[in-house]
């Protein structure tokens, strides 16, 4: 963090991002690249935890895996949108099945960003940067 070279790369400027995924390795990798980009990263491993954190913490963005235990990502997304506190919170959805099936089958995920697995961790960072720059 004290490395000046790294400082340049830090674009996050301390913004808080929640990463929710039940796969520890994926969670770890996303957390790593986001932290390296200067974001403050919180993690959750299931739907319940995700909602709890989302409600209790001040967040700037959520990266949400669709397939999660307890409460599915899809349901988490719906509840986030219903809650006034979180309804405008940007969400990036991680999915292994691509964009087509959820859209075709009307999962009610309109207005979300999709990242399909396997993804590039740095691609996610860029996407997050992009979203947060606009907001």
């Amino acid at each position: 963090m004290k490395d000046p070279k790294r400082e340049e790369m830090v674009t996050g400027r301390g913004k808080r991002i929640l990463v929710a995924d039940d796969e520890p390795n994926i969670l770890k990798s996303v957390k790593l690249v986001l932290e390296e980009a200067g974001y403050q990263v919180l993690t959750a491993m299931d739907g319940e935890e995700t909602l709890r954190v989302a409600r209790n913490e001040k967040l700037d963005l959520i990266i949400l895996d669709i397939k999660m235990p307890k409460i599915s990502g899809q349901e988490v997304y719906r509840r986030l949108r219903e809650d006034t506190k979180t309804k405008d919170l940007p969400v990036v959805l991680l999915t292994a099945i691509g964009k087509e099936i959820p859209e075709r089958e009307g999962w009610g995920l309109s207005g979300a960003d999709y990242v399909t697995k396997p993804f590039s961790p740095y691609g996610i960072v860029e996407r997050v940067n992009e979203i947060l720059r606009h907001s």
């Binding site: 796969e23 390795n25 994926i26 990798s29 996303v30 790593l32 690249v33 292994a96 399909t116 697995k117 396997p118 993804f119 590039s120 961790p121 740095y122």
Partner: peptide
Amino acid sequence: RTPLSSIKAYAEI
């Protein structure tokens, strides 16, 4: 895709 994601992520990192 799940293990693939991890592999790709760490390889890229």
